[in-house]
Design a protein around this nucleic acid. Structure first.
Length: 496
RNA sequence: GCCCCCAUCGUCUAGUGGCCCAGGACGCGGCCCUCUCAAGGCCAAAACGAGGAUUCGAAUUCCUCUGGGGGCACCA
């Protein structure tokens, strides 16, 4: 692979909600690059907005990341030489740099009230102007500003955006992007409560933490010029910027709304990582699926383990266009990964789903049914639905469904009786022992295999769709099988 | 409204001027296999948003339009 210097990258979410697949992808790409180059991946918490703080969000975030197999080398919990890694604990650091910006003439205190700002904004909107700060406090002399600050007057710190000229920034996926400085505003860097806003905090942290590559969502593209301007005003080196395309809803029309995200779970999908395990998804499938939304390796390879991704990922092959979320493809990947599991692994992973369904699923039996449901599972969560009958004492087929297609109840009852006779003559019911005599019975009965086996299937499993019949019978055991067939025959006779 | 970004099958994508009357994958349809359902195998339908320009030659370069997306907070 291309020899690259070790990178220092970071994932810096705010603890305001659940980790969704977009965030997971951002974290993943950062992680991959760090692993590939032998660098470090840091986890930083951007919690400068106390109002939006959600209790437990940080814990959930860490669990989601770990479930996906993404470990961080530095940051909250694990520590490191550049802490603290929670922005709320770095207030003094940001203030120090804000003061430096003011001292150097790159920023200024602003005493305007929120109410006045609101009035200015509505006025500008009425006049069809671009809403922006009108510059009242920018015009203040540094001496007067300093005096008012010293007097304890409430204020924010604004960035003194150049009025003239243009700013050119470079995004790795899109190349040079130039914006006129006149379209930029004097953004607030520090709030009146003294806490920095993202723009300042993130730039200071990235610099102090030695971040070499900033890989983040495309929603930051619009503020990239501001970020570059801050970095240049500080006299720091710029990191490499890579802005990942946003995820669109499955229709491709727009971003997923809060409401739509919540509704997804009704049909077994979710964009929140915390839901995915319960929905029967494998973390390996999530990683593979998400990695391929906005990145590709070549024109045909689709299956990538985490190790493959670490080896093959490259920023150069990132795609800047927005991508619609495709859950059908997700399900496909999940099936692929389920099928690639060993029998032991599969048995382990489906056990909790049986328990959740109220079934006591013992490992020896699980080990026996795993091979026959293996390739029938699109999700782990389907296991109890497909194979629950193995763990139930009784099976209660619908009387009306017991009779086979194009057969009367009487005919079906006869078949059940005959089958019972044939099978009860056997010392045990295994595919090798039971299938040959049943096949010859089918031949001389005049019915089709589908009809005969269909009757037995529903009698024995209670389901119209099941794993292979004789394999299932062997696992259920001779006594139970014979009893269930007998009961079905009686029910059928009652119908006739 | 303003600024910025993006634009290949329904969806994810390959494609960096001739290897492309565009390749792979999901899904869809058909066939095969088959005790049901899957899995598997095979086959098919399906795209370069529009218009200009450059060029011997354009999906690939440039311009305009159109469409889509993101952003315009004392949120991140």
């Amino acid at each position: 692979m291309t020899a690259t210097k070790p990178v220092r990258v970071r994932f810096a979410p705010s603890p305001t909600g659940h980790l969704h697949i977009g965030g997971a992808r951002t974290a993943l790409y950062n992680y991959l690059l760090a692993r590939q180059t032998g660098g470090q991946f840091l986890l930083r918490i951007e919690d400068t907005d106390r109002k939006r703080f959600v209790e437990g969000a940080e814990e959930e975030l860490k669990n989601s990341l770990r479930w996906l197999g993404i470990q961080w080398d530095e940051g909250i919990d694990v520590g490191g030489d550049h802490g603290p890694y929670r922005q709320s604990e770095r207030k003094a650091i940001y203030q120090e740099y804000a003061r430096k910006l003011v001292a150097d003439g790159h920023a200024y205190p602003c005493f305007c009230s929120a109410e006045r700002l609101e009035r200015v904004r509505t006025e500008q909107q009425k006049n069809k102007e671009i809403p922006h700060y009108d510059g009242t406090c920018r015009a203040l002399s540094p001496e007067e500003a300093a005096r008012r600050v010293a007097a304890g007057e409430s204020h924010v710190i604004r960035f003194k955006t150049p009025k003239e000229g243009a700013t050119t920034v470079r995004d790795l996926l899109r190349g040079d992007i130039t914006v006129q400085n006149s379209t930029l505003d004097d953004y607030i860097l520090v709030k009146s409560d003294g806490l920095a806003l993202y723009h300042l905090a993130a730039m200071v942290d990235d610099h102090l933490m030695g971040i070499s590559h900033v890989i983040r969502g495309a929603e930051w593209l619009a503020t990239l010029p501001l970020h570059c301007l801050i970095i240049r005003a500080m006299g720091w080196n710029e990191p490499v910027w890579a802005h990942l395309s946003v995820f669109l809803k499955p229709s491709g029309k727009g971003k997923m709304s809060k409401r739509e995200s919540a509704d997804l779970i009704k049909d077994g999908h979710s964009i929140f990582v915390k839901d995915l395990a319960d929905l029967g998804y494998l973390p390996e499938a999530v990683v593979n699926w998400v990695a391929l939304m906005g990145w590709s390796y070549d024109d045909h390879t689709e299956i990538f383990s985490m190790a493959d991704l670490i080896e093959k990922f490259s920023l150069e092959r990132l795609n800047p266009s927005p991508a619609a979320i495709n859950f059908t493809k997700f399900d496909h990947f999940n099936g692929v990964y389920i099928r690639s599991l060993t029998v032991e692994d599969l048995a382990q992973r489906i056990q909790p789903f049986f328990e959740k369904a109220g079934l006591k699923a013992d490992m020896p039996t699980l080990l026996k049914i795993a091979p026959i449901i293996h390739e029938r599972l699109a999700g782990l969560d389907e296991a109890p639905e497909i194979a629950g009958f193995f763990f139930r004492d009784e099976v209660t087929p619908e009387a009306a469904e017991l009779a086979a297609k194009n057969m009367t109840a009487a005919q079906s009852a006869k078949v059940a009786r005959d089958a019972h006779a044939i099978l009860s003559a056997l010392p045990e019911i295994t595919p090798a022992l039971a299938e040959p005599p049943m096949r010859s019975y089918v031949e001389q009965s005049g019915f089709s295999a589908g009809q005969v086996f269909g009757i037995l299937r529903i009698a024995v499993t209670g389901q119209k769709v099941s794993p292979p019949l004789f394999e299932s019978m062997e696992i259920i055991g001779r006594e139970k099988v014979l009893a269930r067939i007998l009961r079905a025959a009686e029910t059928l006779e009652g119908l006739a």
